[in-house]
Nucleic acid binder design. Structure first.
Ligand SMILES: [Zn+2]
Length: 260
DNA sequence: ACTGCCGGGGT
DNA sequence: ACCCCGGCAGT
């Protein structure tokens, strides 16, 4: 599964799976009514509670699961919630560019160091405000974005890197903004890989060449593993950002984020 | 030289 | 379970 990270002022968190997150945040956009619908779902064990506001889910998690006797006042902002984007797109819209996000010049946090999102492909995404509808027309398709919320903030601070496709969120007035890009879910569809890499070339991988004659694969049937193609965390983030690698990469194991 | 990661080690 | 690294194969 793909994930994206979100950094916020010095703090930072790296989540790779839902288990690192407390809740998921779904956003569905309806092009017809030009409105958005938000939904926060608790990922705790078998909870699955669904609320419609960020403050609600935060309070729910804090009081019910984290055992924080925070009374009714939850604005103690001691531990903020961070978001981790997770993709999930309903349409197989392969048209990249074109429909540019209307991003208002509020606070363009687009930074030079743009790290890629696993399995990414781009899609447009609106800027939204919780509880508020209305969006910009966008193209067609109704992208569904899923965000994961979590409070865990292990790891020490790291260089201020901002990854595109992340969301920002403020506990109080709950106003967040989504930037563009949200990778589509990889259905069992055709290998539509708008990503770089070599042009012509079908999915080569299995080379079960049924050779009738010739000498049999005697002895050393070296089942040489193709060795994953594509950049992995190490190369993508670099040694200086080792704490951004997925766990497997940090342990020198097979990467779990950029799978092949 | 660099990268991905298996196998093996430590806690 | 979590974490780390030697060493090797592939680039
Ligand atoms: Zn990785």
């Amino acid at each position: 599964m793909g994930t994206c990270y979100f950094s916020n002022e010095g703090k930072k968190y790296f989540g790779t799976t839902e288990k690192n997150c407390w809740a998921s945040f779904h956003v569905t956009f309806s092009p017809l009514q030009n409105s958005m619908k938000v939904m926060f779902k608790c990922l705790w064990k078998n909870c699955g509670k669904v609320l419609s506001t960020a403050a609600g889910i935060q309070k729910h998690i804090r009081t019910i699961h984290l055992g924080r006797a925070g009374d009714s006042d939850y604005s103690d902002g001691e531990e903020d919630f961070y978001y981790t984007e997770i993709k999930l797109n309903t349409d197989s819209v392969a048209d990249g560019l074109s429909s540019l996000a209307p991003v208002s010049p509020s606070q363009s946090l687009a930074s030079p160091p743009t790290f890629p999102i696993p399995d990414s492909s781009r899609t447009e995404a609106p800027c939204a405000k919780t509880e508020t509808k209305l969006m910009t027309p966008l193209s067609r398709s109704a992208p569904t974005t899923l965000y994961l919320v979590h409070t865990d903030h292990a790891y020490q601070a790291t260089p201020p890197v901002t990854i595109p496709g992340s969301a920002k969120f403020t506990p109080n007035s709950s106003s967040f903004s989504i930037s563009w890009q949200s990778p589509p879910v990889t259905f069992t569809g055709i290998p539509v890989s708008p990503t770089h890499s070599h042009p012509v070339g079908t999915g080569e991988q299995r080379q079960h060449t049924h050779t009738v004659l010739s000498s049999p694969p005697r002895g050393t049937v070296s089942l040489r593993k193709p060795r994953g193609e594509g950049k992995k965390c190490r190369k993508v983030y670099g040694m200086e950002n080792r704490d951004m690698w997925c766990t497997a990469c940090r342990w020198k194991k097979a990467c779990q984020r950029f799978t092949d």
